[in-house]
Design a protein around this nucleic acid. Structure first.
Length: 427
RNA sequence: GGAGAAAUGGCAGAGUGGUCGAAUGCGGCAGUCUUGAAAACUGUUGAGGGUCACACCUCCGGGGGUUCGAAUCCCUCUUUCUCCGCCA
């Protein structure tokens, strides 16, 4: 959520930057400013009314102490009108505040100046590419054929147990999956990310904190909570519970930066997709991911973003997978993000790029909702910046490994993973 | 699942209807002393809204109520603790 004072003072900049997302925000921004002015004016009226009735109440107290009951009772009568006035004013205030918030929830984050304009993923900007695309045999298979051939992931079995998009990993497939999780966590820990195992269900406050709610309930599975009657959601990413650790937090500047890594299953409804996009491991309702999350001082956050990008690069380099990095254009940028780099691994047998990581700086957009602040070196309170990235999402990395490492004799295991798998080939 | 107790500022912990946004201690910050540090002493120190700045308003787990007036009384929800039961 954007900060109203910032919008007020930087109206033109906000409209101009939001235009990168192909939206004309001028009307929304004008409405925000107007609603905020109304809100403040009502607030002032209400404050004055309350001040008056507070004064009277104090007088009444004094009169009772002195034993002047008649005078006290006379004053009581005066408060009736004030009470009605303040009741009506506070109702108006609630209405305005709700309207303002509802509007603010609909305004996405302001893109960073380096974000290219553009409508769709076609206009994302490739900023880096590394790794050789292997020459595969004529009879090279896409991963959904390989998983069947070697019996390592069973999609039909998952459909039987749950439904489409809930695969069952078997034998060496399960082992390879676990090896990847362990390897990612180890690599992240090595460079200072503290490991977290968060809850896999979140409440609505947490959903609001990181921006999944309101409006994006559609991506999450809802769970009825019999205990408290509050709706819970299966996490779409561990970003949500991990970032929400710092909801309503006042940190000292010596606590920053905060660096966490977390493994979790992720659950996404992903309605409306079909065909090659959802084939095999390309898109699932349940998948595994290792995430990195950072809380930073504003002046450090873009350096932190670079560090995260370089860290993910180093992992992909070790895995010897061909990949590229895209800077997302305004039209493809997530609602809460100011700048996002997507990592894509080349799926040789499908002849297409698959997104395996997304690394973003949210600046203060999440922190403002979360009320995540810190005291800077001058003792002043400031909103922190939040960032996160996948390091990494499992299914498509697995797809990339299976397809790129296939040989006539079987699928080789990337060297760095062999200590974790305990085998070097799937055959 | 049953019975009881509790929830107050960064932390601990007073406060049961009226100068209480809240004593006190710890912690933090500033100063004195010191070559420097520690100790000691002195001062200062909750959050949000609002204002050029004051004033002023709101907040004592969340929501609702009683009252001229609520941290304090009532209702309700949540959470925590103790005891019993059950249990991976």
């Amino acid at each position: 959520m954007l900060q109203v004072p910032f919008i007020r003072e930087n109206k033109e900049l906000v409209i101009e930057r939001l235009a990168k997302r192909n939206m004309d925000a001028s009307q929304m921004i004008a409405n925000v400013i107007e609603l905020d002015e109304d809100r403040r004016s009502i607030q002032t009226q209400l404050d004055n009314t309350l001040a008056e009735s507070n004064t009277i109440s104090k007088e009444i107290g004094m009169l009772f102490k002195k034993g002047e009951v008649d005078q006290a009772n006379a004053l009581k009568a005066k408060t009736t009108d004030l009470k009605e006035a303040s009741k009506s004013l506070s109702e108006q205030l609630t209405t305005k505040t709700d309207a303002l918030n509802e509007l603010l929830y609909k305004i996405p984050n302001i893109p960073h100046e380096s974000v290219p304009s553009g409508n769709s993923e076609e206009e994302n900007e490739e900023v880096f590419r590394e790794g050789d695309i292997p020459e595969l045999n004529q009879d090279a298979l896409p991963h959904w054929e390989l998983t069947k051939k070697y019996d390592i992931i069973d999609f039909e079995l998952g459909s039987k147990i749950t439904g489409a998009g809930f695969p069952v990993y078997k034998g060496k497939g399960a082992r390879l999956q676990r090896a990847l999780i362990q390897y990612f966590l180890d690599r992240n820990s090595e460079v200072g990310y503290e490991e977290i195992i968060p809850p896999f269900l979140i409440n609505t406050d947490s959903g609001f904190g990181t921006g999944q709610l309101p409006d994006k309930e559609g991506q999450m599975y809802e769970i009825a909570n019999n205990v408290s009657n509050e709706t819970l959601y299966l996490i779409p990413t561990s970003e949500v519970p991990v970032t929400n650790i710092y909801r309503d937090a006042m940190l000292s500047d010596t606590q920053l930066p905060i660096k966490h890594t977390a493994y979790s299953p992720c659950f996404r409804r992903e309605a409306g997709s079909y065909g090659k996009d959802v084939r095999g491991l390309n898109r699932l309702h349940q998948f595994e991911k290792v995430e990195i999350v950072r809380v930073e001082k504003p002046e450090d956050s873009y350096q932190a973003l670079d560090e995260m990008v370089n860290h993910v690069k180093s992992i992909l380099k070790e895995l010897k997978l061909p990949y590229r990095i895209l800077r997302l254009c305004g039209g493809d940028l997530g609602f809460t993000s100011a700048l996002t780099y997507d990592f894509e691994v080349f799926s040789t047998a499908q002849d297409r790029w698959l997104e395996i990581s997304s690394v973003s700086n949210f600046e203060t957009f999440q922190a403002n909702r979360l009320k995540l602040r810190f005291k800077n070196s001058e003792g002043k309170k400031e909103l922190a910046h939040t960032l996160n990235g996948s390091a990494l999402a499992l299914p498509r990395v697995l797809a990339g490994i299976l397809e790129n490492y296939q040989t006539e004799k079987g699928i080789k295991v990337p060297e760095v993973l062999i200590p974790y798998t305990g085998f070097s080939i799937i055959d």
